[in-house]
Amino acid sequence: MDQKTAGLNIAIFFCRQLDANQDKNRRAIEKELGLRIRFFPLPCSGRIELLHLLRAIEAGADVVYLVACPEGACRYREGNLRAKRRIMFAQKLIEEIGLEGARIEMVNKTAEMPADIGAIAMELLARDAKVSISPVRSNAVASFIEK
């Protein structure tokens, strides 16, 4: 894994339609990163709620991704479109308390991206980190890694 995101806690919400075998496919990265990475499968990305996103950050995630199907390819027609608007709303909300909006990001899968969620996660982690450790956890006891 790239060092760019080393030290960051990552929460990945993802649509299970992306990867039927998601449970197996994410193990390698779970093994490597331990509790620094958390996966939350959703039946559809449209099932994401603002509270999910906020609570993830509150619990100590530095970056929260929502990985969704390509636009226009949602099994429920509009799930990922709705998700996108919720993500934008959540970004604005956290900006109001002084966090970077970039801590929450929507990723629509593209044809170039790998098919399994573990590999997608690897790819996301290899990107340049847009943010550093969240002040939410650096200034307080992080509960993200606590169970």
Partner: peptide, 21 residues
């Protein structure tokens, strides 16, 4: 209820950022 949850979460985070409890 949802907005209460969101606002409460935001307030808690805000406090954490500033190191307040």
């Amino acid at each position: 209820e949802k907005e209460v949850g969101l606002l409460a979460s935001a307030l808690r985070m805000d406090a954490k950022i500033e190191g307040r409890t």
